Computed example of a mutant assay.
Amino acid sequence: MPDHPAHQQVLTLVTSAGQPTRARDLCLALDLPLERKNIEDTRAKLKRLVNLGILMETEPGLFAQPRP
């Protein structure tokens, strides 16, 4: 489990969303300006969580918590 607070925030928001979420929507939830850099940084965090097996990418660009 990543210890960085930004990863924790992203994970909390994806978990609480209850449905697959896009990086852009997470930027809005985090009150980040919708700039390309912020969206790409958020997407990179999501991809890292996918690579660690914490999240899954249900389809390109949509991230969710794995189902039990």
Rank of each mutant, 00 (worst) to 15 (best):
C27G: 05
C27E: 03
P33S: 15
G61W: 05
E40V: 08
D31I: 04
L46K: 02
P60V: 11
L28C: 12
A64T: 13
A29C: 06
L49K: 08
P20W: 09
D3V: 08
P2V: 06
M1G: 10
S16P: 00
P68S: 12
P5T: 09
R24Q: 14
K37F: 09
G53T: 05
Q65Y: 03
R43L: 06
C27R: 01
T15I: 00
L62H: 14
L34A: 09
A17Y: 02
D41C: 02
N51V: 02
D31Y: 10
R22A: 06
N51R: 10
R22F: 02
L26F: 00
M56Y: 14
D3M: 13
F63I: 03
L26E: 02
A17T: 04
Q65T: 15
S16I: 08
S16V: 07
K47I: 08
F63E: 05
A23E: 02
M1A: 08
T15P: 00
A6Q: 08
D3T: 09
S16D: 15
T15D: 06
L13C: 04
V10D: 02
T42G: 01
H7C: 12
R67S: 15
I54R: 12
R22C: 03
L49R: 11
M1L: 03
E57Y: 04
M1S: 10
L55H: 10
S16C: 13
L13S: 06
I54F: 00
D41Q: 06
G61V: 06
R43E: 10
R67D: 11
H4P: 00
L11D: 10
T12F: 08
G18V: 07
N38H: 13
A29M: 15
L28T: 15
T42K: 04
I54P: 03
M56V: 14
N51G: 13
V10Y: 04
P60T: 13
I54Y: 02
P33Y: 15
V50G: 01
T12S: 12
L11Q: 10
L49A: 11
L32C: 10
A44V: 08
G53K: 06
A29P: 01
H4C: 05
I39E: 11
R36W: 15
P5Y: 05
P66H: 07
L52A: 07
